[in-house]
Write a protein that binds this DNA or RNA. Structure first.
Lengths: 135, 135
DNA sequence: TGTACTGTAATAATTTTAATTACAGATAAA
DNA sequence: TTTATCTGTAATTAAAATTATTACAGTACA
């Protein structure tokens, strides 16, 4: 998931710098140093979350759906996130033990709190701000 | 790492509830529903970080090194943590691209900020408080 | 000296993640 | 209307990370 988050931000940063011009998955794969299908796969996800528009066919490619100062990093993070960042393990502690029985729930609560903290932090940073750090 | 954090907290919670009595890796493996060697391995790490004392030989086992209200969850998290929580991917973007060249550093900075946020949050919770939630 | 523990290395199994290939569908332009 | 260029997505393979297990030497108590 770490790698996917990086890929997603990378893609969106490229699109922001493209300034409205469409970019192809092939071009982006060059910058990411990976193959186009992987890029398209991640873009497919970003599009489902409303961050990217695509155009098929010759001369097609991708653009941002929203202006970069309307995209916060938590929005990007959410597209890539499955469960809580820290969890959740598939450990199956012993239900006959009081600690074992309750640990999952208690850890879950903790992870949710931490997750909320992360999302709040990421929501204070826009793609535009992030993207501005590049020469 | 997620699972290891859960295992570490689980172990420490058991020890807190044991109230000074030594617990064996075998007993804890019962609560964790896993095997003793795995428990000992994680404990070995916790001991290296000064959280657990061990006693070898017959009648041996484990106790907390510190009172549970002196152990904060960030201390536990640090024992299990290798790099930043979100990172760091081994992607190797294209250095010939301005974005590709700098993305690693920019992401790294971001991850460090997020990490700091998480540690700060975890430092506000003691093992004693966490442990108190169990019946 | 036997029993009950820890400590740790080595290895095997499993799961997860990432990368690749392949090809059908869409669009624009010649 | 055909060709070139691009997206969309499924299927597969490859690689990596994680977790689990086995095994056994070392230590301490009775």
């Amino acid at each position: 998931m770490n790698a996917r988050f990086q890929i997603a931000i990378h893609i969106l940063t490229l699109l922001d710098h493209a300034d409205g011009e469409v970019l192809s998955s092939d071009y982006m794969a060059g910058s990411l140093n990976t193959n186009p299908a992987l890029v398209r796969k991640e873009i497919s996800n970003l599009r489902n979350h409303g961050l990217i528009d695509s155009k098929e066919g010759k001369g097609g490619g991708y653009t941002l759906s929203l202006s970069a100062d309307k995209i916060t990093l938590d929005m990007i993070y959410r597209t890539v996130k499955t469960g809580p960042l820290l969890g959740s393990s598939k450990n199956q502690p012993n239900p006959a033990c009081p600690i074992g029985r309750q640990i999952g729930g208690q850890i879950g609560k903790l992870y949710d709190e931490v997750d909320h903290e992360i999302l709040t932090k990421l929501s204070t940073i826009t793609l535009a701000e992030f993207s501005r750090n590049f020469d």
